[in-house]
Design a protein around this nucleic acid. Structure first.
Lengths: 343, 343
DNA sequence: CTGAAAGCGCTTACAG
DNA sequence: CTGAAAGCGCTTACAG
């Protein structure tokens, strides 16, 4: 490989000058002719920076780690796109670990988060990422920005307005005249192992809060039996609906906590002979492309996942670069209702 | 940070011994007591390897780059999972670039593929990744494994049996008694800019080959007008069906070249008042979760994308480690029909 | 203003 | 068998 030293020799200058030309550093000033000559030699000899050497010297790698549960969940792809774009804007590249794919005793996380490898980490934790896994990430000395949850420690975090999203969904159903509205999907209890900071609640609990607040604001007392827990698979939504139709007394509409689950809920309702939306109305939290493509199309609250990823990566870059940053709930854009055929 | 030198001092040995203990190197042999002492000091002082230094010294980074068009396409997530798992098994980590998200003049690709940054690259090209982008990847001196396409140059590649998948789909429709079968989706002409090696054809053309071969084997001459090009969006499938119903003379079944498109095709057929599968039968190439969740559920040929990613990353690791490798079409598992309600 | 020299932390070929 | 020393390629504080 061509090195700085070789470029320097070819151009008849010192390595310092080559380095300065390459970085536009103003510390070392050189004539325009020298600059042009160095650049010509760089081109001619095909010099490219050795990033390992630069990292060692500067103690900066220019790499951000992204640790997320599972990319096959379509809810996360816009978030990853946002991280990707923000990283590119700021000159970083991305290293990836899907936490739920890491087998027991995996060294991949250590390998990625190891000293000198990445400048910081974006962590989107989830209930299945056990606390030791989360803790190992949070204990790194490199900055960590936590998305979607509010950590116990001093790490910066960024969340979206989950309570607001559930409120928007519930209010939409209230406006349509529903008075018996259920909340379906996600684990609310012991499976939510991530321990948030005092005074904050787990993502699913925040959504439950928004749902209940909207009901109460309409003068309706929330019922515990209308809250149905499940995992996020479409089959879980389907199974929940099948149990539901056996009941005489049941909600006429559901806020479904997850886009994938909502596809199963609608399929289950149709299979059970219910008309959608007449017999059962559905609004999903999280909009994904396929909701606008299926029959019937599914109403959803669009969550700013792209923006969350973009803002999170930007926040991380700022933390790495020593700027002061502030954790907060993203308020713009707000969760947005997209009404379709299921309401 | 704690360094090898500090561990050496604390344990009263030389850095060589610490390095040897850390790597189980047999070149330097030490007593069990020394080994234990070094390990104890590593634990006590919290030593972690500085990967930048190791990379500089060994000229190996332990990082694989993954360059793919767009992760929001659910067809690619299992492939990424396969790459992820194979990387983990072999002790590598992954760096990611979504080629279609890279803005013009982006330096991200250079930054990732730069010298010293990654040991090799897995490239899944596509029609939208223009040839200069592809070429810049293919010209790296670090090994590149091309997935799903057969490159022009000497790079190793790995593909799946696209012709076979289209054949399986077409034969299924033939067995059901259809004699007028169309092929819908994907660009077959000028948009397929990736120039494959002599004697090989672009992925969509390979599928077209399989479709036509199955028809001919059944004594049916393929008709050009039954091949409908489009992009991969569901809306494109929908639009294609809307045009179709205006025709008196039309196919009674379609092989749809893409899972997402098939969702649109089915939605479009229902919207146009066609009964599925009676008036129009549909088989998608590529199976994704949602096809089993929608109403009606959509028949599909499952492509071994996970296996493609896994085998591709394994091949790349082997190339990096100097093993001899051979490019080939993955034959196991073969494309597998999953019959559902649209046929 | 410019260049020589040091040093980031690691691994390994080499001398003892 | 063990340790001291060199050197990967870069950047930057420092001497001239």
């Amino acid at each position: 490989m061509v090195t700085v030293k070789e470029i320097a020799a070819a151009a008849g200058v010192s390595p310092s000058v080559v380095s300065a030309v390459l970085h536009g550093s103003r510390h070392v000033r050189m004539s325009e002719a020298t600059r042009a000559l160095v650049l010509a030699k760089v081109e001619e000899l095909g010099y490219t920076t050795n990033f390992a050497a630069r990292s060692l010297r500067t103690a900066r790698s220019g790499v951000l780690a992204v640790v997320a549960p599972k990319l096959s969940n379509p809810v996360f792809t816009p978030m990853l796109d946002g991280i990707h774009d923000a990283a590119e804007e700021r000159g970083y590249v991305i290293m990836l670990a899907e936490a739920m794919r890491l087998v027991d005793g995996s060294r991949m996380l250590e390998r990625i988060l190891g000293h000198g490898q990445v400048d910081g980490t974006i962590l989107r934790p989830n209930a299945d990422l056990d606390s030791t896994g989360v803790r190992s990430v949070l204990q790194r000395e490199a900055p960590v920005v936590v998305l979607d949850e509010v950590p116990d420690r001093a790490q910066p975090w960024l969340a979206i307005d989950d309570a607001g999203a559930a409120r928007v969904a519930t209010e939409h159903l209230l406006e349509l005249g529903h008075t018996r509205i259920g909340f379906l999907g996600g684990w609310l209890g012991p499976h939510a192992t991530f321990r948030p900071r005092e005074g904050f609640r787990h993502i699913n609990l925040r959504r439950l809060d928004g749902y209940q607040a909207a009901l109460r604001a309409a003068g309706i007392e929330p019922r515990d039996e209308d809250v149905i827990e499940s995992d996020y698979a479409a089959s879980a939504g389907r199974a929940a609906v099948e149990r539901l139709v056996a009941l005489r007394d049941r909600p006429t509409a559901f806020v479904v906590n997850n886009a994938t689950t909502s596809v199963g809920v609608v399929a289950g309702a149709i299979a059970a002979g219910l008309r959608v939306p007449d017999d059962l109305a559905v609004v999903a939290i999280h909009d994904i492309d396929v909701l606008a493509d299926v029959t019937p199309t599914i109403s959803a609250v669009r969550m700013p996942m792209y923006e969350l990823g973009h803002a999170g990566a930007t926040l991380l870059a700022q933390a790495i670069e020593g700027e002061t940053i502030s954790s907060h709930v993203l308020t713009s854009p707000p969760p947005e209702l997209r009404r379709r055929e299921t309401t």
